[in-house]
Simulated assay, not measured.
Amino acid sequence: MRVVVSGGAGFIGSHLAEDLLADGFEVIVVDNLLTGRRDNIVHLLGHPRFRFLEQDVATIELLPADAIFHLASPASPVGYRRHPIETLLVNSIGTLRLLECARASGARFVFASTSEVYGDPLVHPQSEDYYGNVNPVGPRSCYDEGKRFGEALTMEFVREYGVDARIARIFNTYGPRMDPDDGRVVPNFIVRALTGEPLEIYGDGMQTRALCYVSDMVRGLRLLMERDGLAGSIVNLGNPDERTILELAQLILRLTGSKAPLIYRPPRPDDPTRRCPDIRRARELLGWEPVVSLEEGMTETIRYFRRILSSTTVRDA
């Protein structure tokens, strides 16, 4: 069985590709390395069932496949603010190209959407039938509206052409292979804690996030692809264990043993104040829920960042 993973050199995509290979699938990763990193897949490059196409999915021609996971897109505020046009194009034209591939091949298709489609939500926790509270022209809109358009396009291919497509709304995910410079809260806090720099908290630190470990996310994505009868389904994937940013900072300081101070900055524009998934649909349709605790997952993530920071120090010495 041939599986295409767009964005497969990224954080979640590389773990997904690795997991699929381990289960005997032929895997084709398509990634232009705009925000993905070759280091994330270098250990897979010699595998006989692995193929890497360094290409923008917005320019891709027909690519035969049995299943397509569309994860390609900058996903962090640093990434999509640095590449806003590319973010809009990969979630619009790139999604169109891959849906056309799925239609031509009769492949199943999973579109990796995001909790950002809910914007700064007025409903907590967020369920799939909530339409969201999104600023369509704000500094995050290239990502939020790009994903919302990608969802709409995916659903039209389901209705118009009978493509067996499903939508995953991915909530905050963390773990090894996160880019230390991508600006998201987990790598930002861990790197600063390990290097003794102040941990920056925007606003009062009472805004919340619910963090899902990457192995749980990969399992959820695969179940969404593999379950029969789910064409047109939209499913939240995330961990409902809601924590404040201040709690996360204190946990990371404790697990790293760091004495780094906390400093407070003005709130970021359009930064959601609360974010937490309602995962009842994932439980009912997929039999899925996270199993890795925040402390366990954070310990593994800190171990990864210690290793890469250590290797960087050695190379720079």
Score class of each variant (00 low, 15 high):
residue 145 E to D: 01
residue 136 P to H: 11
residue 145 E to Q: 08
residue 162 G to P: 01
residue 132 G to Y: 01
residue 140 R to K: 15
residue 165 A to Y: 14
residue 144 D to W: 08
residue 140 R to L: 15
residue 148 R to N: 06
residue 177 R to C: 12
residue 163 V to K: 05
residue 166 R to P: 00
residue 155 M to Q: 11
residue 139 P to A: 07
residue 173 T to G: 12
residue 165 A to H: 10
residue 170 I to R: 09
residue 171 F to V: 10
residue 140 R to T: 12
residue 162 G to D: 10
residue 182 D to V: 02
residue 176 P to G: 15
residue 131 Y to V: 00
residue 132 G to N: 04
residue 176 P to H: 14
residue 141 S to P: 01
residue 177 R to F: 13
residue 178 M to W: 12
residue 159 R to V: 02
residue 140 R to Y: 15
residue 146 G to Q: 05
residue 148 R to A: 06
residue 180 P to C: 09
residue 172 N to L: 14
residue 157 F to V: 06
residue 131 Y to C: 00
residue 136 P to Q: 07
residue 155 M to P: 00
residue 174 Y to S: 05
residue 155 M to S: 03
residue 144 D to P: 00
residue 145 E to N: 02
residue 146 G to E: 04
residue 143 Y to Q: 03
residue 132 G to R: 02
residue 177 R to K: 15
residue 151 E to L: 02
residue 132 G to W: 04
residue 149 F to V: 10
residue 142 C to G: 04
residue 132 G to Q: 05
residue 174 Y to D: 11
residue 153 L to K: 02
residue 166 R to M: 08
residue 172 N to Y: 15
residue 147 K to Q: 08
residue 179 D to H: 14
residue 151 E to Q: 05
residue 158 V to A: 04
residue 147 K to A: 08
residue 169 R to I: 09
residue 152 A to G: 08
residue 150 G to L: 13
residue 139 P to L: 10
residue 168 A to V: 04
